[in-house]
Design a binder for these strands. Structure first.
Lengths: 129, 129, 129, 129
DNA sequence: GTGGTCTAGACCACG
DNA sequence: GTGGTCTAGACCACA
């Protein structure tokens, strides 16, 4: 996997290690990163994005505890061989369901009509695709 | 304004005071809470939702500093008389733009196609309306 | 929960944070620590056992990710309210099954007869009970 | 000695070289591998179990330093001729004593009663014997 | 008061 | 080379 695929925003409210966890988890669920795929080393990620190795390590450890990654001793981390891509699009959608609900709530509080919201999201979804 | 309109989720990742700030800000921007509308007292909100009064107070203070609320001596807080509803729907949409972008990013990482995402969001937007 | 219940052995091969994770997980599974039971603060554990607060924090975080602990913001950690004691002794036994299998393997390699092994373990199990 | 007697679990928490050291040490202490018994070559072990030759070599070196193995020039490693089987079962039991104590501790933390634990271990000890 | 995050750096274990 | 562990310490966010 290419290090530059990771997008780190140090200023974002979401902690860095969680940004990494979230991105990797989604890219693995979608199959973009297949089982066995080696991950960039802690030091490489840290170096490229100018963050502390421990921050990266923390993200990797959490995903390992989750069973999404596995450690190949002395050789680094890789997508767990036992891990299976989440086939069904419905199941992958569940990962963003809370996000969708929150968005709907806020739109309602703002008394936005559905059309412009859907139109804008549609545009964003088409971008870069 | 009715206290029960506030939805507090103590276990949510978003801090409680920010939940309050966000909700009030949106309900005021949309005009659901008109200028002059009195807000429930800190003690009432804290009592009903079983949270710390300081947390409520903090939210109110932030909105006061923002100019959205004003303190009526001896009568508590109210929506600022000078405050005007954000008329244009486009401008209100800007409040959820970052949310939309983040959602689009995650959908891309999950390799979700636009249709089901839009369909699901559409359903949620219709609900309870 | 009393801090002194935790037994930390800094020299053991098992990392400190894992010792904490293991002990708490077992005491919670057995119901010794009931749902809602508050845990000693990170700083307290660290102070009493002369270890770094982050080491304790790491253990707590892992158990939180596992759903065994929950964070009460500003108030510390507690056994998750949703957590249920593992009722069946059989299920709790599964937590030491790998340990038992490893022990059996080693005993076989050492050509130990079952009796003395069982007798010794029996003695140890009676102790302090 | 037959290579296939070695059981290597690369994913186990115990490092590979220590798995080898432990197994050989126990099989030699019990007399399963008598003095003079030749060991499979580093390359053979590494090839069969698909592990790094250095890992095997490291294990052999440790046991050589311990005096349990000896290097026969040009002929590889063998169980040290001077090595004597640990006759007394009590002495061999000492090799698993820490393991037994740890097991007892965990059983206590899980509030397991002695009977089922002993019964299960008894079953495992009978297996394959 | 609580825990969370991140950094810097040292040292170890493994292959 | 890899990741793991731990420390020390700073700073922040929350209640």
């Amino acid at each position: 996997m290419d290090v530059s695929l990771l997008l780190i925003r140090p200023a974002a409210p979401e902690p860095i290690y969680r940004q990494i966890v979230g991105q990797l988890r989604r890219m693995i669920a979608s199959g973009q990163l297949p089982p066995g795929e080696p991950l960039p080393s802690v030091r490489e990620v840290a170096g490229v994005h100018a963050i502390n190795p421990m921050t990266v390590s923390r993200a990797y450890s959490l995903l390992e505890a989750e069973g999404v990654l596995e450690r190949l001793r002395g050789k680094g981390m890789a997508v767990a061989a036992t891990h299976r891509r989440v086939q069904s699009e419905d199941k992958r959608m569940q990962l963003i369901e809370p996000h969708l609900r929150e968005l709907a709530r806020q739109a309602r509080e703002l008394e936005l009509s559905p059309e412009p919201v859907l139109r804008r999201l549609g545009d964003l979804l088409e971008d870069e695709e």
